[in-house]
Amino acid sequence: MLEFLKKGLKKTRDALKNRLGDLFVRGEINEEFYEELEEILISADVGVETTLMINARLREEIKNNKVKELEAAKALLKELIIGMMGGEEDVALSVPVSRPAVYLLLGVNGVGKTTTIAKMAYNFSLEKKKVLLAAGDTFRAAAIEQLEHWSGVVGAEVIKHQTGGDPSAVIFDAVSAAVSREADILLCDTAGRLHTKKNLIEEVKKIYRVMGKVIPEAPHESLLVLDATTGQNGIAQAKLFQEAIPITGIVLTKLDGTARGGIVIAIKELTGIPVKMIGVGEKKEDLHPFNPADFADALLA
């Protein structure tokens, strides 16, 4: 077994916090500092290229601002990352003038699309909104049942067809139903699909087109759900889904583990897609708006 593991098998986020905290209180701003910073960022899945870019920008900032103190350097770094992640930009979901607001959720298998929909439905129900759910995952065994379970919990009706049916047909019906029943919100679930499967990406395009047939502006948000444990493949996911349809935001899930989801920085740099929400647990309350400052803190804590 590796040496570092013997030492650090019990490495939790807290232990990490202390070690990284140390980085910024002792020593000076030297090459070792940048090397350690590189390790921190790469270990958080930021990726080599983006890490080197952040490092280079920080060097420049430190030089321009004549910073000598580590605390000040840390503040600069945090500002840098906040800026890269959109700063003060509004992450609220776009709401159309006339209801319903139609939101489409997409992603590879197992990232937490259905759970995210449940949490969104719960949040909207707190705002006394009338929510409909579209069971667009007609592929995976028991996916419809999973959504129906949540519909009971959060009190939102499900529009569904049979397993094996055409997902765009379900979505078409759901958008029409949302209009006729005067729902405030329609949340559309879809089957998990790898971005490399051409036919499944074509299916996404079709779903997208079909929505526009009922409501020309729909979907009002197309959200890519991304698992925070994802590594560099997240970039390919974002790029290929965005090639299919315009992705308006990312939902970063499973941030309650030890993964820090640094890949979203690279994704933002490369595609411009902002993170809009984060998932931090399995309970219906565990979905929050994305906050760049908190994200930067957790990344560097």
């Binding site: 490399t196 994802t230 390919a236």
Partner: peptide, 30 residues
């Protein structure tokens, strides 16, 4: 598709349970 955190996850599971093997999934992607 798991990133850097794979070591923490696998390390913890192994420590608690004594794993005997791995199944690697979703290899049909890129």
């Amino acid at each position: 598709m798991t990133g850097q955190d794979a070591v923490n996850v696998a390390g913890s599971f192994h420590e608690r349970l004594g794993l005997t093997g791995i199944i690697l999934t979703k290899l049909d992607g890129d």
